[in-house]
Write a protein that binds this DNA or RNA. Structure first.
Length: 511
RNA sequence: GGUCCGUUCGUCUAGGGGUUAGGACGCGUCCCUUUCACGGACGAAACACGGGUUCGAUUCCCGUACGGACUACCA
């Protein structure tokens, strides 16, 4: 694919763990960049010093890396638009804020928090629909538009705290053509005089975002729908800064909703439903609380990737198994949906099961080995045989360990229901004979050989297989269900199998 | 409250002026099978409502309802 001038960015705030919705946003940006042969940027939006969380930036990078998203330009691999952390770009914002002031599109405001609250209360009391700092109310407030020029100068010189606000025009239609939603029109009276520079000298999201997107030559802003209401404000900023002709195109993504009921997916809902919202485990540095991630819960990155890509997008045909490369090939902004998407963890599990079965046995052996080690289980059994036996029936790698418990110890309890119905004298007769036949063998048989031997015993005793199989299974594993029994016998080894059969016969009462 | 956005099976969605409204997950039944799972087959299951426009609307338009986002010196 030929390279293009397409440049997109993922611009998270390092305020904690990266939410799964953020991962999807990053993914769509990435898919578009790769599809178009463009560039994917990572920009850290750390302008809120009060919410900065140490370790969050690192966590974001690790998460993107896990899911397979690579960054072309970012804090760790800067291009020619650095720095890529907003806190390191402070002077730039200052410069453009000043320009806005100089050209009459922004102004200083000195109002205290109390004064702002008083204004809002007053408007509320007067039954004003939306109390805001705007073209009308700004005339009643303490700002460089209402205060005498020398007082403004004096306040600035004295270091009085102030913010810089955008001077939003009173009557103006602001339009934008969203790639997902089409034309969106907002009247400027619905936009308030947003703070551009905070009193701590940091820019707010709106200013920093527009300035950076321009300076970083971003061509497409792909972000969550929660930004749609403020998009007209951003359009206004591009206009005031004279950047209209190179303004990026916008694509506002549908939100990820909670699985039941309505509303944005939150950590709380996910906890309630028993699934993670973070890609990787996250330890809150302040509280020390640990939240499990999809990775730790056993989700494979390729499964989560495939699942996430389909939350709000589809290729337009009936195919739904896609690798990253296939997603890149198939992706288009036009096929992104408009409506919010409920997070259906059952589908994620289905993807997981699918991808797990595609894993090479050796990978799964490694999982199982680790789990065994963690639980202090040692065994001489060839784990690859267990994995091959169990592979088709698990959803998570950890299921391997839980499903194969019976290999590592004789049953201490037997499935009561099966005993009641299947542990007949006939079954016992067959099992005893089978145990004897097994014991007489020179070596452990493989699965088919064990089956042939068992069939021989059945023929001898004139019993049908279905009548005793369940009993045999319980005797061997304690369970009423599980993978191929003859293969289990083969893996267990003939001595162990015989031992288990004898134990069951002596312990269990015929009912 | 205001502004904006949205609404096809339970869920993710395809489709689009005339279709038996398609697929997937989940669910159910059956088949396969030594059980369970896998696999296979089949099945139940949807165009929010009301008005237009039209020969015809699930599809286009307008309302209503419902849902969501936003409404901070947070992003």
């Amino acid at each position: 694919m030929s390279s293009s001038n397409v440049r997109v960015r993922f611009a998270p705030s390092p305020t904690g763990a990266l939410h799964i919705g953020g991962v999807r946003t990053a993914l769509y940006n990435y898919l578009y960049a790769r599809k178009m042969g463009g560039k994917m940027l990572l920009r850290i939006e750390d302008t809120d010093q009060t919410r900065f969380v140490p370790g969050a930036e690192e966590y974001i990078k690790k998460s993107l890396n896990w899911i397979g998203i690579t960054i072309d330009e970012g804090p760790d691999n800067p291009g020619d638009c650095g720095p890529y952390r907003q806190s390191e770009r402070k002077p730039m914002y200052r410069e453009y804020a000043q320009r806005l002031i100089d050209e009459g599109n922004a102004y200083y405001a000195f109002d205290t928090e109390d004064e702002l609250n008083a204004m809002r209360d007053r408007l509320k009391a007067a039954k004003v629909a939306s109390p805001q700092y705007n073209a009308i109310t700004r005339a009643t407030m303490k700002n460089s538009l209402t205060l005498p020029e020398d007082e403004v100068k004096a306040r600035l010189a004295a270091g009085d705290p102030y913010v810089i606000r955008l001077k939003v025009p009173r009557k103006e239609e602001v339009r934008l053509n969203d790639l997902v939603r089409g034309w969106v029109m907002v009247h400027s009276s619905a936009i308030d005089d947003k703070v551009l520079m905070k009193s701590d000298g940091m820019p707010t999201y709106h200013l920093a975002n527009v300035v950076d997107d321009h300076l970083m030559r971003i061509t497409h802003v792909i972000r969550g729908e929660e930004w749609l209401p403020s998009a007209p404000l951003h359009v206004l900023l591009y206009k005031f800064l004279g950047w209209e002709s190179t303004m990026p195109q916008f694509a506002h993504l549908p939100l990820l909703l909670k699985p039941d009921g309505e509303g944005k997916l939150s950590k709380r809902d996910a906890d309630l439903q028993g699934f993670p919202v973070f890609p990787l485990e996250w330890k809150d540095p302040a509280s020390g609380d640990i939240s499990k991630g999809f990775r730790e819960e056993g989700y494979l990155s390729e499964a989560l990737l495939n699942f996430l890509a389909f939350l709000g997008w589809n290729p337009g045909n009936n195919e739904e198994i896609f690798s990253m490369d296939q997603l890149i090939e198939a992706f288009s902004i036009e096929r992104i949906g408009k409506s919010g998407t409920k997070f259906d963890i059952a589908k994620a599990k289905w993807y997981n099961q699918h991808y797990l079965r595609l894993k090479p046995t050796s990978d799964l052996v490694a999982y199982l080995e680790a789990d065994l080690k963690k639980n202090g289980v040692t065994t001489k059994i060839d784990l690859a045989r267990i994995v091959d036996l169990l592979k088709e029936r698990i959803v998570f790698p950890a299921d391997l360990y839980t499903e194969c418990q019976f290999f590592f110890g004789r049953p201490t309890v037997y499935d009561q229901k099966v005993i009641e119905t299947k542990w007949t004298s006939e079954a016992v007769t067959v099992i005893e004979a089978f145990a004897a036949a097994l014991a007489a063998l020179p070596a452990t048989p493989d699965g088919p050989a064990a089956k042939a031997l068992f069939q021989q015993v059945l023929d001898d005793k004139q019993v049908k297989m279905g009548k005793v199989m369940q009993a045999l299974r319980v005797a061997l594993t304690g369970n009423g269900a599980g993978p191929d029994l003859m293969e289990i016998i083969s893996i267990l080894g003939k001595d162990e199998a015989v031992g288990r059969l004898q134990q069951a016969v002596s312990v269990l009462q015929v009912s």
